[in-house]
Design a protein around this nucleic acid. Structure first.
Length: 391
DNA sequence: AATTCGGGGAC
DNA sequence: GTCCCAGAATT
């Protein structure tokens, strides 16, 4: 029977997305009134400081960058200073910021700007993007801030604003989504005009400011006050109550499944519990004893036989039976738990009842379950057994 | 297209 | 603890 290929990924991106004609103008106006104006790399056209800040701000929050930026430009105030500095000094000034390839590229870029561009940064994004450490978005930001060039950025802030404003459901990291967002970024630019250079500075900064201060990840300001965002009247996410869903989070890789076999070693109304080591899952909790993991496909009869054997250390087992299966989901794996109940023969084991129980191991009446910390799935397992009347 | 680089803040 | 942040380079 012929199968239809079903797209495994999210629905295609709508091709009828409407970008308001005054999108750019609204962002520009908003930025001038409500945006950030006093960051250390603002109010300058010094491409060196602008470039440095953009590199530092890649995948790094503003608050973390400010002190590093100040120290860096104090130590190395021009691109010529940086180009001539030893690598050790550059790395020392970067230490703690992370993504150290940025620092190595920074140094290389400075040397290249000095040797190939006469010490002056290019203003054409297409040229900037050929320099080490400068991608498409960073190139556009440098060009806009340093020379008012009309070219769009697309960073994490802009992706969030776009995903919400235009109601884009796919994860922005996906190729198709990112491609579409670049198209929208081109369309959303403020119209060319006599004030283009100033507008592009305000617009580029405005998108970043919107994403950082209004259209934030957790609680966007529009939820409390629609007037806080210049785009709220056209925002799909706000209209449809999707600000908590957009942008879509990075899809998590399918988590692996592990399996284990636990023993419900039963003595009258008591079950044997074992204290788990402090490290590892369920550290410090009282859980059921586990049998060595199976590598071969699970075979109930075989497991029951092994459980009987295992239980001889505790008395004379009367029977062993597969009593339950459940799956517990952790962050990084799923655990399939199979439980084999082993009933110890009461009469044959009377003499053992008062025998010493090793530390880290104890017989517990189900009535006392609340007294011990027990993993949730183990507790469910025990409660199910009790409900069926086996304890 | 997926992975790597990373410390730090928000939650 | 997770998720993300003014992304780019590498595989």
């Amino acid at each position: 029977m012929p199968r239809k290929s079903v797209p495994r990924t999210a629905p295609a991106i709508a091709d009828d997305i409407h970008v308001p004609h005054d999108f750019g103008a609204r962002v520009v106006t908003w930025q001038r009134q409500h945006g950030r104006h006093d960051l250390p790399w603002q109010n300058t056209r010094d491409a060196y400081r602008i470039w440095l800040s953009e590199i530092m701000l890649q995948q790094t929050q503003v608050s973390a960058v400010i002190d590093y930026f100040q120290r860096f430009v104090t130590a190395l105030p021009t691109v010529q200073h940086l180009a001539a500095a030893p690598a050790d000094q550059v790395m020392a000034l970067w230490a703690g910021l992370g993504y150290y390839s940025r620092a190595r590229n920074l140094h290389r870029c400075a040397m290249q700007v000095v040797s190939e561009h006469g010490g002056r940064f290019p203003t054409d994004p297409a040229v900037l993007v050929t320099l080490p450490g400068i991608g498409r978005s960073t190139a556009a930001a440098i060009a806009a801030f340093s020379a008012g060039v009309r070219s769009p950025i697309l960073d994490g802030n802009v992706k969030r604003v776009f995903a919400r404003c235009f109601g884009i459901h796919g994860h922005p990291g996906e190729r198709a989504v990112e491609t579409r967002m670049w198209q929208l970024a081109e369309q959303a630019l403020p119209a060319p005009g006599p004030r283009q250079a100033d507008d592009m500075v305000a617009y580029t900064q405005g998108l970043m400011d919107l994403g950082a201060t209004v259209c934030s990840r957790g609680k966007p300001a529009c939820l409390a006050d629609a007037a806080a965002c210049p785009l709220s009247a056209d925002c799909v996410a706000r209209r449809d109550g999707l600000t908590g869903v957009l942008p879509a989070p990075k899809p998590r890789a399918a988590i692996p499944e592990r399996s284990t076999v636990m023993l419900l070693l039963r003595r009258e109304r008591e079950v044997l519990l074992r204290l788990r080591p402090d490290s590892g899952i369920w550290g410090g909790l009282w859980s059921l004893p586990e049998m060595p993991v199976d590598t071969v496909p699970f075979d109930a009869e075989d497991a029951e036989a092994r459980a009987l054997d295992y239980a001889r250390a505790f008395g004379t087992p009367a029977r062993a039976v597969l009593a339950g299966e459940l799956t517990h989901v952790f962050t990084h794996f799923r655990l399939l738990i199979r439980a084999i109940r082993v009933d110890l023969d009461a009469e044959a084991n009377e003499l053992r009842q008062d025998g010493a129980t090793p530390a880290g191991q104890r017989w517990l009446s189900l009535d006392d379950l609340d007294a011990l910390g027990t993993p949730a799935p183990v507790r469910r397992l025990l409660e199910d057994q009790a409900r069926v009347g086996l304890f």
